[in-house]
Nucleic acid binder design. Structure first.
Lengths: 156, 156
DNA sequence: CCTGAAATTTCGAGCCG
DNA sequence: CGGCTCGAAATTTCAGG
């Protein structure tokens, strides 16, 4: 959704919820001197407006059996085949995101696999589409990860 | 954290919570024929074990003023300077993640900026470290994004 | 893993600008 | 009408077993 009319209360709610989706609404209410029900209503509105896309639980991939994380860049032969590649990527549950990009690659995706052999298997058996070629960047380590900052100046 | 001893209840909880961090514990309880308090205890244990890393609210970046998303790959002159680059990246709040990679780049990061001019400003003013060179891939569109699948077979 | 109680979330009704 | 408060029912959280 494009930008909406936010007031400073919306900003505070988004800031507080960003890092902790289960932060008690009454805590937010006390910090903003407003009723818990009003906070609840604001959050519903932000959700139905598409500003809040969802509440996700971040799970350690290694703890659930994914030792390998990789980026895959696609260089397409035929630049009209984006949708075909995306359809194939959607069918592979280990692919967690997919972007259309400019620069070295046309499509750029991220994938989790059980191990390097599993990654290779996915690339060879499920990503050899005959539509172009791929390059793989394996991640040794995710050094940090954090949400986008909520900055009220961005909205003025 | 490395892999733990999960039972099928843990798996179910992680599956259900993954897409909806605010799913009522009592709903999970009813679907698993167990008390709400027991679900609560399991979730606490999964959190303190580092399996659950946190509960995040996913916010549409465009709605809070970020029109540009980009990947930045670093090719370092001196491969021992990883930590120095990471320290600089951490100071830039618009940088949302950072990986050590093998392949074309040594370090690979993702960044959100207000617009292309803002992205260029960050790259020129804050990422010209004299430690190597960078390549930028701009994302036109995030086609999809989803959590890693929780698959019990991965844990056997 | 359960019970039970206090705090919190959720939702409908009503109030006020 | 839109945004808030109040109050009741459902849920979360925590202590104790």
């Amino acid at each position: 959704m494009p930008r909406q009319h936010f007031d400073s209360l919306d900003i505070k709610i988004l800031e507080m919820l960003s890092n902790n989706a289960r932060k008690p609404f009454l805590e937010i209410a006390r910090e903003t001197h407003i009723s818990g029900a009003a906070i609840h209503q604001r959050i519903q509105k932000l959700t139905s407006a598409g500003v809040i896309l969802g509440f996700r639980t971040e799970i350690d991939p290694a703890a659930v059996g994914y030792q390998t994380c990789a980026y895959i860049g696609f260089i397409l032969n035929d630049p009209t085949k984006f949708d075909e590649v995306v359809a194939r990527l959607r069918e592979i549950p280990e692919v967690v995101d997919c972007h259309f990009t400019t620069g070295t690659y046309d499509i750029f995706a991220r994938i989790y696999a059980r191990n390097n052999a599993h990654l290779l298997e996915i690339i060879h058996k499920r990503l050899s589409l005959g539509l172009g070629r791929t390059e793989t960047l394996i991640s040794f380590k995710e050094v940090f990860k954090r949400p986008v900052p909520i900055v009220s100046e961005n909205l003025e």
